[in-house]
């Protein structure tokens, strides 16, 4: 209860600091292996929901009314940021189970990592900042 009130307080007394600093940006990458024998460490990492190459203006306007995938992706970015501030099982679970649902994988082993992208001078630097546990699939729905 106290924790929930702690979440509520920033809504009642907001700080309104949108985009004040453009911080290093997390990307979620994952590996999935059908069997442990495949050795998950040797499977190449794939970016979770990379943005499309192009979206038309009509598509953008349509997203005003229906944009669940994008909003879930932004939620997962929040979970990634929370993980980078300090490990929470909830954020790790949320990312794992939403990747698992997207893969529609019935069985296997799943792991994700967080790649931090930041600008150093004129070039972009990529740093691996977090590895999740290796999760056996299927996961239970709901927490």
């Amino acid at each position: 209860m106290l924790r929930t009130l702690k979440f509520l307080l920033p809504a009642l007394v907001p700080s309104w600091r949108f985009f004040d600093v453009i911080a290093p940006s997390p990307r979620i990458q994952f590996v999935w292996s059908e069997s442990r024998a495949d050795n998950i460490e040797h499977v190449s990492w794939r970016e979770f929901r990379p943005p499309p190459a192009h979206i038309s203006l009509i598509g953008m306007l349509g997203h005003l009314f229906w944009n669940p995938r994008r909003n879930e992706t932004l939620y997962l970015v929040s979970c990634a940021e929370r993980l980078l501030q300090g490990y929470t099982r909830h954020s790790e679970d949320e990312i794992l189970r939403r990747i698992a649902r997207e893969l529609a994988a019935q069985t296997g082993y799943l792991q994700f990592r967080l790649l931090l992208v930041k600008r150093v001078g004129d070039s972009l630097q990529h740093t691996v900042a977090f590895h999740s546990r290796i999760q056996v699939l299927p996961m239970r729905d709901g927490l």
Partner: peptide
């Protein structure tokens, strides 16, 4: 707030609650 352990969509959820 409890279910998502915070807002689902940051600023927009905070404005919703406000």
């Amino acid at each position: 707030l409890y279910y998502f352990q915070g807002p689902y969509n940051g600023g927009s959820d905070r404005m919703s609650l406000l």
